[in-house]
Design a protein around this nucleic acid. Structure first.
Lengths: 143, 143
DNA sequence: GCACAATCTGAAGCTACTATAGAGTCAAGC
DNA sequence: GCTTGACTCTATAGTAGCTTCAGATTGTGC
């Protein structure tokens, strides 16, 4: 099949498919005489795998890692579990961060109930007065 | 004061300060004879405001919006509240997304308890078998 | 033979910075 | 007066994961 059909089967765009090839997530396929990419069922499987990982917000590095581990059929899946556990930890941490953020935002929001002049707006005052703190390092690739 | 001092007062790097100037978040300051940027207390206040907004994960667009609203002192703060509420909605949605993600990940994780061959790994099988779904539109700028 | 869809490559754009190179400025010490 | 070192300047490229675009080719239906 050609790239358009593959993309449709994996629910992504053809640009994304070509991008994954450049990124070495998808192997370069055979070409037709006219230089069109020609894919088979294995490509569909692999691309679906990648898209599913992305739907779980894994990074390309994590996915490349998983794919390499899956290809080394001789070995056990302990390493797979490790990658997975680490990713779950990423998600967990981001959830915690956002929950804390939401508390701060809600607290600020309560400082302005009505419609007064901006000079008196509790939100703006709060934003100006907050204790500026250094940006902490990210322990997750999740935004 | 010069850029280094300003950056320290706002807990960010000098590169970030110059970047904000290019992005029209911070107004271009006066310069010394030697072409060094020269800042006053108003710049400190504004930069702190920006950094606090960023600590709350607001986008530059949201911040530009808030700054413009704060500058129009004649008007009320209804619009400020609107920007703020929308941002809280962003955070809320992202938390919901991640919570759902975590459920999926946990379910997958339970499919592989021990250390077997990768061919039998429930996680990898699950990743291959998941129903590929189209990436839904983002309603939040939060990653 | 011609229109039109699909494909090709390469490059630029997005967000919010960070990092680097190479040049210039300034204050202190000898 | 001269050097050293800290600071600053501009301009450019890199990050992640794509998306968008321009301009050229290929393939298909009539």
């Amino acid at each position: 099949m050609k790239i358009g059909e593959l993309a449709q089967l994996a629910q992504c765009t053809v640009e994304t498919v070509r991008y994954y090839e450049r990124e070495n997530l998808l192997p370069a396929p055979a070409r037709t005489q006219g230089n069109f990419r020609l894919y088979g069922p294995l490509h569909v499987e692999r691309l679906r795998f990648i898209r599913n990982c992305r739907a779980l917000d894994m990074s390309h590095d994590e996915i490349r890692n998983l794919l390499a581990l899956a290809d080394r059929t001789a070995e056990g899946c302990g390493a797979v579990n490790a990658v997975f556990d680490q990713h779950i930890a990423h998600v967990d941490e981001r959830i915690r961060e956002l929950a804390q953020l939401k508390e701060q935002l809600s607290a600020l929001r309560q400082r302005c109930a009505g419609e007064h002049a901006v000079a008196a707006c509790g939100i703006l005052q709060g934003l100006a007065a907050m204790e500026t703190e250094a940006r902490h390092e990210r322990h997750t690739h999740l935004g």
